[in-house]
Design a protein around this nucleic acid. Structure first.
Lengths: 214, 214
DNA sequence: TAGATTGTTAATCGATTAACAATC
DNA sequence: TAGATTGTTAATCGATTAACAATC
């Protein structure tokens, strides 16, 4: 019976959660939509709408309980359960993600790293088990992971996505340059490094147009 | 006299550019809004609107010239000029960005890496000059960089942003957990690692709710 | 109770899509 | 010229903001 959570709201959920954690750490137990709005640079109306949509609850006259809202967000995003991650590709990015120790603290332990190019990086600096690509089919079903990080060449990304889908992976965090086409019941977030730089370059161009350097 | 470029359109610009480059590489010289729409998973009307807003031009009856559109996007995003980058922080992420060789090929050469914590990572695996934080004020003005990558602890990010602004940096690509508040004439893109994982977790939760595993 | 703030409906704003005249 | 597709105005759709009644 839960209401439709719009795309922009989905994108805001982690920020709400982050701010609840910060407030809690600061010992703040209650907060009004007005104060939270100032903090998060959001319109208070939007905050009330958002909380309403996700069926959170406040107390009229007082505001929202930080603890309650935090726990509610946690539950909605499924952060109470651990989500295991596998990493595909052992180049720079793959290694970095695999070795990022803090992921486990946040409930996202990296449980395996698959190496597409065995000769590529011989030295094992990884803190997690490394397997050859050929063992994907036998290993993945037992690892209990639903999230995969794709850090591999553009050409291989789509093919790998399909393969992982068949193995039960339902969410992809990709760093490849490809525009991936996932099945309907698979989530993809693509971090395009170059897109980010290009957007920043665009912004600089705009600013320079508005007020040219003498 | 150029028309207002909406936020969603700004986000789409790099994708248009990417597809133009791909089409060019494939030897395609002309493309209709309908075909491009299929490729990019966009409504053809939107494509025509977008191109119109950025003042690109097609030929009625035929479509758009790939080369022309590519060059036009390049110009709009300022990709014809090189945008030098400095990297702040020498942890895992900082090193990775600094050593990413392909950035230079795309017109974004990393020209310096500043180390906030000199003892932190003694071995210099960096392919670019490394300077101590203390030299920021003397070095940055000469480096001619407008973009800075922030790969440092949450607490230090906002302070560093202000400092870099005073040194002429006008665009920030941050990996910190902080919600940064830039001046009006500074652009910030914040890559929240955990937000991404939380959103993927949320999607998985939603999918499981829709069709629970037996 | 009075004061404050939520919860929710209604109004507005902006982006996407549709439609079709202009034109290559 | 006829056919096709752009360029652009108008319609629709959806998200944000405003307003205010409900209620703690």
């Amino acid at each position: 019976m839960s209401r439709y959570v719009s795309e922009p709201l989905v994108q805001r959920l982690p920020a709400y959660y982050r701010h609840m954690k910060e407030l809690e750490a600061q010992g703040v137990t209650e907060i009004t939509s007005r104060n939270l709005g100032e903090r998060m640079q959001l319109n208070p109306c939007q905050i009330r709408q958002d909380i309403n949509v996700i069926e959170g609850a406040g107390k009229q006259g007082f505001g929202y309980s930080v603890k309650e809202l935090k726990e509610h967000l946690q539950k909605i995003m499924g952060l109470d359960q651990h989500r295991r991650i596998i990493v595909l590709g052992r180049g720079r990015t793959g290694q970095e993600i695999a070795n990022h120790p803090a992921f486990a603290d946040e409930g996202f332990p990296v449980v395996a790293l698959f190496d597409l190019d065995p000769g590529h990086l011989a030295q094992s600096t990884a803190a997690v088990p490394v397997y050859p690509e050929a063992e994907l089919e036998t290993r993945v079903p037992d690892l209990g992971a639903k999230i995969a990080v794709l850090a591999l060449p553009t050409e291989k990304a789509q093919e790998m996505l399909n393969r992982l889908y068949d193995l039960g992976i339902r969410a992809i965090w990709s760093f490849s340059r490809a525009d991936l086409h996932p099945p309907r019941d698979m989530a993809v977030v693509n971090w395009h490094l170059y897109d980010t730089l290009q957007i920043l370059s665009y912004r600089i161009s705009q600013m320079e147009e508005e007020s040219p350097r003498r």
